[in-house]
């Protein structure tokens, strides 16, 4: 009984890796696939709300702030005092703004040099996608999709941009 349990436990890392690979293999390759995945995910981070600003204002703010705040390369180094080792890497954020008269979208991808990103699109996994659509006069509907709680800072910044009450950049 004990041996059987231990043997099963030895398989757990293999199963975890297999699941991870399956997950990565089906990673969203574009914004639409990302939206679909977030809608059906049990850990989904999808939020929808309206803001009291004209669509054109929201759209131009997203265009300006997306490029200004999210086209970033972050070089990081982490030193462990306990183990005397140092790790470093480069995180490259890529914002993509797409708009027409009836819709504005801001997509954020993240490519991490320190992580082997199996199955990711060339510019990294999609992290956040925001859609803005015009509603009644001076109102705009926002739908925001986020991959995980790690993206809360970007979500918070984007919320400030669309509401127009905080135009600051996230300290990535």
């Amino acid at each position: 009984m004990l041996c059987s349990m231990l043997r099963k436990q030895r398989r757990l890392p293999l199963i975890a890796v297999a699941l991870l690979l399956v997950g990565c293999a089906t990673a969203p390759k574009n914004a639409e696939e990302f939206r679909q995945a977030m809608r059906s995910s049990p850990f989904k981070k999808v939020e929808s709300f309206e803001v009291a600003r004209p669509f054109q204002d929201v759209s131009s703010t997203l265009r300006k702030k997306g490029n200004e705040c999210l086209a970033r390369t972050v070089r990081w180094t982490a030193t462990s005092a306990k183990y005397f080792n140092t790790r470093s890497g480069v995180n490259t954020y890529k914002p993509t703004f797409v708009a027409n008269a009836n819709r504005a979208e801001l997509h954020v991808q993240l490519k991490r040099s320190a992580v082997v990103e199996v199955g990711s699109p060339p510019d990294g996994f999609y992290r956040v996608v925001l859609d803005a659509t015009p509603m009644a006069k001076d109102r705009t509907r926002i739908d925001m999709y986020a991959l995980s709680i790690d993206d809360n800072l970007i979500r918070k910044a984007m919320r400030g941009w669309v509401q127009g009450d905080n135009l600051g950049c996230p300290d990535l």
Binding site: L153, K156, A157, G160, N166, L167, G168, C169, P170, D171
Partner: peptide, 11 residues
């Protein structure tokens, strides 16, 4: 110039 809750702003 402001910095709060990991959001910074300069205008």
């Amino acid at each position: 110039v402001s910095y709060a809750d990991r959001i910074y702003n300069v205008s």
